[in-house]
Amino acid sequence: MDSVAFPTKLFLLHPNPNPNFPSRRTLRVHCTIRQINNPLSSDSPRLKLRRLVSEFESLPEPLDRVKLLLRRASSLPPLPGPDRVPANRVMGCTAQVWLSSSMDPLSGRMRFAADSDSEITRGFCACLVSVLDEASPEEVMAMKTGDLAALNISGAMDSRVNAWHNVLVGMQKRTRAIVASGEGRPPVQLFPSLDVSADGIKAKGSYAEAQV
């Protein structure tokens, strides 16, 4: 399946130069992750996203799209208390967002659950979870923020406050860490930081590496 078969708008901002992702050089997951041969199989993230985009595109009024987002939020199960911990916070959102991630040991697919104290952000989370839950790690990594622009809900897609961007990047970082862990490699620091002490300043994790 080729990306050109999708609505043009869908990949307008970030065309995928290699629709047959994965980029093994980047992910190095080929030993453990099953290759997805048909990216538009009935439950593929691309198809789910396409359906989601169609659903939003059928509503010309911005307010109706917001209402749809809020309905999505209502359908998102609340994250259990033990998962609403600082380690699961998605940083960079103006609202609080928690994202729990794991890999199904049998299928090798990613499982996501998310929550937020903002209803609109919960709606974003619900959409992303519906698209990427049970996706392969490669499919998670292949998703681009620009792919979500077609939903045309609100805000600049690359803004630091944008929940789409932050939650998607959060999903990808966690996926990368889980894959690395499964392969016995040290996971990349999710939140690279500088340790400042009397002995000097040391980088803890690499910002560049932490970016997908």
Partner: peptide, 22 residues
């Protein structure tokens, strides 16, 4: 009502620019 939800709709529906966050 979360302040980000307020700010989002005030902007989108009402053209009113306010800030939300910390």
């Amino acid at each position: 009502v979360h302040p980000t939800d307020l700010a989002t709709l005030l902007d989108q529906q009402q053209g009113v620019a306010i800030r939300s966050g910390h």
